[in-house]
Design a protein around this nucleic acid. Sequence first.
DNA 1: TTAGGAGTTAGTAAACTTTACTAACTCTCG
DNA 2: CGAGAGTTAGTAAAGTTTACTAACTCCTAA
Lengths: 359, 359
Amino acid sequence: MLPAHGRRHNLSLVLQMLYSVGAMSRADLARRLGMSKVTVSDLVAELIESGHAVELGPSDQVRPGKPATLVDVNRTGLQAIGVDLAAHEVLRAAVLDLDGNILARAERPIGDDTGDAITARVLELVDEIVSAATAPILGIGVGTPGIVVAGGVVDTAPNLGWRDVPLRDLIADATGLPVFVVNDADAAVHADYTLGNGGDDLVLVKIGRGVGCGLIVGGQRVRGAHFAAGEIGHVTVGTDGGAVCRCGKTGCLETWVSAPRLEQALATAGDDSPLREAGERLGIALAPVVAVLDLAEVVLSGPGHLLAGPLRDSVEQTLRDRLLARPEAELTVRIAHDSDDIVLRGAAVLVLWDQLGVV
Amino acid sequence: MLPAHGRRHNLSLVLQMLYSVGAMSRADLARRLGMSKVTVSDLVAELIESGHAVELGPSDQVRPGKPATLVDVNRTGLQAIGVDLAAHEVLRAAVLDLDGNILARAERPIGDDTGDAITARVLELVDEIVSAATAPILGIGVGTPGIVVAGGVVDTAPNLGWRDVPLRDLIADATGLPVFVVNDADAAVHADYTLGNGGDDLVLVKIGRGVGCGLIVGGQRVRGAHFAAGEIGHVTVGTDGGAVCRCGKTGCLETWVSAPRLEQALATAGDDSPLREAGERLGIALAPVVAVLDLAEVVLSGPGHLLAGPLRDSVEQTLRDRLLARPEAELTVRIAHDSDDIVLRGAAVLVLWDQLGVV
DNA sequence: TTAGGAGTTAGTAAACTTTACTAACTCTCG
DNA sequence: CGAGAGTTAGTAAAGTTTACTAACTCCTAA
């Protein structure tokens, strides 16, 4: 690696510190980062020049000596675009600030569209939301259903009728902005990890038309050998059979745990037993994963009325039953915050990570 | 990070390149690493001075220009110690060269020892094997059963009667050498990954008195939130009951898949159905893990007469049955090479990684 | 008025680069 | 067969970049 690589690393350390802790003086930064005041002053100067950081004026803190000048990430002067292609019935996009706050929204109905028609609709949506930005845009993050391989190509997304779509390049060519494309569950887990205070070892299960998950292991997102990490919907659960799945197999997780299937089962059952059974099946499927990875948190994302309550409780109880109890290794099962916008936020977070240097 | 960090990184890049590709000239190193010839020459000089690299004399290659001088990692001039505390009935240690070849061995029987007596026996063993080295020792790697937390402390190892044993410091104090302590399955997966040409996404299941596994995900070893990644033995498998386990639960993986249990079942059954059933149960347990992590390889390590054949075939078939078929995402189920020495080699590999800078 | 902290300037050390050179070889031709 | 041309490896010197320490000015509370 070159000295320039070290420099870039240090620039991103400054941004990470400001992003996570908040505004502080150069001297404070130097102390926290273990660098000299001169070095930090120089790094901050470069970040101010590039527009990634701003001075906020003197500190309110009263103590001896020259008043400190606070600097921060340019929270309001930079924006990111998040795009969610996995929502129910619509394509969604938003302008977000660096804190993940949504400043503007745009939508396009999916209707009966598929394939190229969807692609055209996505580009219209992106054009509209880019126009709505009120500050320089760092980049565009996209959360899509299906499998995304290297180079931002959507390998397969059956729900959108996509095969081998070079989505990153299509959007980058149309906008001239940096573009990052990931699976929607991966976007969601990034949002939880960064904005939802998730720990370094967590799995987020996202329940929509199907069921998928995003994984953070040792503070890193898991991509998988074929970019297909998180594809849990078609794993056979348990050893006592189950319904026939649309994929042709029997007893897939998705036959218990997906939004359409749960709504239908609830309507038919008249009580909440489908939720408890779904939670049990999800717990059975997740137990080896939690054990092998030694995860600390299981996060559920999706319609709150389905996930909160009996389903969540059942996941927790089933994991407790099927794993060896270790008091010092407490496992948390919780509902994600703000599931409706979690993919938008997560897509935007990926932009921040890449453009501000948290990669 | 400081310029010195970059320097250290570059020194380890040179060693990694030599280690993986083999001897080459400074000019060749410069081309492959994208550095200037002057920089590489300087880095190599430092490595030669420290004894980590050696010049091998002129290249045999005939072509115009000044003859190249080949340099390589000091493969025969440096050694590492590997220690295996997870073998059946014995504590084992070896001197290995940088290629993982075993040059000398030592053993101590466990007998009825437990707790502090075992600790004393380990220190005797280490003393003996250190004396057997014929070149400077880079360090000592130890693969132990149980859970190893930060700082090389064995948190729990019931089979050895250990609780909260500061094994790394005990051995380091006794020898004055750098010491690295990991779980035996983690050591095994490192050996497979580095010496066994394993890919970046693999799980190694190690079957001995119990059953545990080591994981490489995205080229990185998985440690877990509580340093307990890989503890798969006490996960409940399936939904149709099973034997009562020594932990008190029912249907734990270990009740099907452990060496003692398999030997006993084979003696009773008179045919190989216990192997096939064990393989099926292991496949059931691993299916969600393989799917969620998108693994490319499942490696089985342990007694060959148990693992090769019906058990392996059953693991493969069960995974095929319970996962969605994706032709482009071929999963390999294979038997590890040299299971008897895999922990010794893996422990030594950790030394190489840490001391020669592959961390 | 003093002490101590924030921030800046000047100069230096380390780690890289580029430029230019020498050393050592192969190939070609008279 | 020997001299000269051409090529590559490796090194010396000079330059650049990125960090540091030393020394200073500025500022304010006590």
